[in-house]
Design a protein around this nucleic acid. Structure first.
Ligand code: FES
Ligand code: FES
Lengths: 148, 148
DNA sequence: CACTAATAGGACTGTATCGGTGCTAATTGG
DNA sequence: CCAATTAGCACCGATACAGTCCTATTAGTG
């Protein structure tokens, strides 16, 4: 269905939460509790985001994570790539000649072009866009959640 | 890695092959043989593409498939959606409140926006773009294939 | 009217990836 | 020294995917 991994969705939630208070540091447990996510999973995600350079960390008691860059400087593409690796729609776009099908098959180049276009689309949305909420929850479901 | 399914890649190959001779009809076996793909898989894909309205079929001996529209009227997005279903990066973009996390979480709307952007990116490339090969295979691998 | 070639549609299965969990270091503050 | 917290890896179960096969149905051919 051309969907991102669920973990990526979680990661986006985490990053958006951090983007709401960029200066503050959060522990993994704290974030898990606040967002209602399983804390081991959150811990794992934070590690990946850290490795990608999107976060800085402080170890030891009272430690935690905070954004390495300003919210407007981090895009959804960055988060996706931090969790899932480079955006490459097809095998042939990443490896070399795995598809090795038709000798005069040049779709590989086209897929690379398409991958770049998708990457660009993901790059247009930044964390501050996600954090800002210029959107009214008109859906029933949203209201129901508010009531509970 | 935000990749399309391998079957989608195959489907694209098939469609591009058809686009090279839009008037001609091909049998599934013929296409499989020509492209070096497993024929049951090709048969399955053709069925899905047919259902999506991208192909027309003729049954019986001497039958086969051919494009339902002109090559320039079919985009990569069409092919992707024929095989994988609607482009929806996240659960919440397709279902209703599966993620049900933060009450004031509005990232769902953002994901829908992003999904549309990705869809648009895939829509920019049409079959005739893919069929046309304005691209020189400078890669070693390409040359090697040509030699064999 | 058989027989063959081909699509139509579905069921089934092995496998790879993903989501999730747990454990063991290393580090920091009290 | 102890508690809190990150760092890194290893493992395991579920889910979705790739691939195969089987049974209709339809159309041409001798
Ligand atoms: S399909 Fe990947 S290069 Fe041909
Ligand atoms: S993450 Fe889907 S609506 Fe909040």
């Amino acid at each position: 269905m051309l969907r991102i991994a669920k973990l990526t969705d979680y990661a986006a939630l985490l990053m958006v939460r951090l983007a709401r208070e960029p200066a503050r540091c959060f522990s993994a447990a704290q974030l898990a509790d606040e967002l209602g996510l399983p804390s081991p999973t959150v811990a794992k995600l934070m590690k990946r985001l850290l490795r990608a350079g999107l976060l800085t960390s402080v170890r030891g008691a009272g430690g935690g994570y905070c954004l390495a860059l300003a919210p407007h400087a981090i895009s959804v593409a960055d988060v996706v790539e931090a969790i899932e690796g480079r955006v490459a729609l097809t095998e042939c776009a990443v490896g070399k000649g795995v598809c090795a099908l038709e000798p005069d098959c040049a779709t590989g180049a086209n897929w690379q072009r398409i991958s770049r276009a998708v990457r660009a689309a993901l790059d247009t949305v930044r964390l501050d866009d996600m954090a800002r909420t210029p959107w009214q929850p008109v859906r029933m479901q949203g209201l129901k959640e508010k009531l509970s």
